[in-house]
């Protein structure tokens, strides 16, 4: 039995130490996905907590033949989608003020900050795929599994996301027009 399966079994047996290990292992990835998807720190904390609790409770449904990380991330993405959809319906009803967007601040602002802004402007499914592939470093097949789409669709989404972000970076003047980025960094 591999580490994932052992950890899952201990968690389901109700071992608090195993829960702590589980949370420690996935909190960064899950919170990262939630924050970048939702663009709101408090919402991201709530949804990340909900994701991890739900994941532990339903570990019995995880297919031990697959990796645990993509399964946990798929719960995070689904919870974020649900939250975004709730947010949209509440905003449509005009019951709350527009959610104030809080783009995660990078320690070294500048290029990374521009990247965050460009990601925040992406379409929801492009954004999720981009985060899973470039930040969580899942393979295209795993991203496809998380998103519930064919791999061809994910490749297209990733390319479009990249193209959109690149265009934004250029449009915002992050690169000089002198073309000094042309053949190398």
């Amino acid at each position: 039995m591999d580490d994932d399966a052992r950890l899952a079994e201990r968690c389901l047996a109700g071992d608090p130490q195993a829960w702590s290990s589980f949370v420690h292992r996935f909190e960064g990835a899950v919170f990262g996905i939630c924050l970048r998807m939702l663009q709101h720190r408090q919402d991201a904390e709530d949804v990340a907590q909900e994701t991890l609790v739900r994941a532990v409770k339903h570990l019995g449904r995880w297919d031990a033949a697959r990796r645990l990380a993509p399964w946990v991330m798929s719960i995070a993405v689904n919870r974020c989608r649900t939250r975004l959809s709730q947010r949209r319906s509440i905003t449509h009803l005009g019951e709350v003020d527009q959610v104030q967007e809080e783009t995660p601040r990078a320690a070294n602002s500048g290029l990374a900050e521009e990247l965050e802004l460009a990601i925040a402007a992406l379409r929801e499914d492009y954004r999720a795929s981009f985060i899973l592939f470039y930040q969580q470093e899942l393979g295209v097949e795993e991203v496809a599994e998380v998103m519930g789409c064919p791999t061809g669709t994910i490749k297209t989404w990733l390319y479009r996301a990249r193209k959109e972000i690149a265009r934004k970076l250029v449009d915002r003047g992050v690169v000089s027009e002198a073309g000094d980025e042309l053949y190398g960094i």
Binding site: N108, L111, L115, V174, G179
Partner: peptide, 14 residues
């Protein structure tokens, strides 16, 4: 140019 810039941004993505 945008692609190269994105590469650099991703390498600095914290």
């Amino acid at each position: 140019r945008g692609e190269r810039l994105l590469d650099r941004a991703l390498s600095q993505w914290p």
